[in-house]
Design a protein around this nucleic acid. Sequence first.
DNA 1: GGGGAGTCTGACCGATCGGCCAGCTTTGAC
DNA 2: GTCAAAGCTGGCCGATCGGTCAGACTCCCC
Lengths: 180, 180
Amino acid sequence: MARDRRGQILDVAAGLFVVTGFKGTSLQDIANGVGCSKASLLYHFSGKDAILTELLGPVTAELAELDARLAGLDGEEAVRIAVEGYVDLVLRFRREVKILLDDLEQMFRHPALGDVHQMVDRLVDALAGGRSADPAARIAAAMVLGGVAVAGARAGETADLTDEELRAALVRGALRTLDH
Amino acid sequence: MARDRRGQILDVAAGLFVVTGFKGTSLQDIANGVGCSKASLLYHFSGKDAILTELLGPVTAELAELDARLAGLDGEEAVRIAVEGYVDLVLRFRREVKILLDDLEQMFRHPALGDVHQMVDRLVDALAGGRSADPAARIAAAMVLGGVAVAGARAGETADLTDEELRAALVRGALRTLDH
DNA sequence: GGGGAGTCTGACCGATCGGCCAGCTTTGAC
DNA sequence: GTCAAAGCTGGCCGATCGGTCAGACTCCCC
């Protein structure tokens, strides 16, 4: 069983990070999952951060690669490569992306937010154009959900737009995403 | 100064939650910011969660309102109202959205991820079609960033698409968002 | 002045966390 | 068989957290 403790620890840690987030997972949780002692984890890894670093290392490496590939490009071609590269990155490291997003997901489950989850699900339905929308429409709806939130929050930093212009840009972008 | 301690606590807490996240902010931090004792916070609020609940209450209320408005609608009109309602929601409660997203932002600042931040900025440049792209293009680029990540992570749950179909849907959606 | 309600505080508590360490057991080369 | 290295563990530590509590202070009504 304990043929490769290091790999086993990484597997268990990744699984737990996805479900309960990085902060929300204690070394004891990982040790319980692995079936060893907490001290054993710290024999294989210098600390909790080291586990996360090793899990996310490949992601940053590939992102750096994409970054380098984009450095010499410009215009239309750069956009296409950026889009495809980013999509591939997210899909290839879906588990790792989930780890990053899960601290957020966990916030959504916070009692302070009540049954926001179900309302968000219904919002996706509406954006997709009905409960029985085709899969591609549901994906576009999910993209709008994340895209507007991220862009809206990010826009606060670079305030070179009025609120009205920002609103219009977000609405137009969302409708384009939904192919409307 | 301490005319309305309750409001003052909420203000300081919101500011700290945005910068250091909910989990990353201790009651002592809030107390220091307010200039009172930690015990005083717990006199005004039943606990740390109660502070978050009061901060996020208006958001969930408005989301519930949008949810109700969508209940009776269908088709094209539902999409338009969902999009505009959601955009308005995000913009009106930009600070609160930032609180939700900041636990994520903080993860991005984790040493394990190195200088991912700068690479992400350059990725936005590429997606927007150049460093000096117009503001609307930059917003669309930010939407792609968040949208693909959220949709990609979410798609893992409802696996009614092959990876190739999922990839194609994400790429098409991203290009639509960017108006390409 | 008396006294009750509202406000605030320092000291303290139990729980949990990440991490450290001395020492035990297992393994494998010689 | 020997013995050193590798692997592993229980027990412990300091720090931090959210939360409790008895008491002190202020203000205002009588």
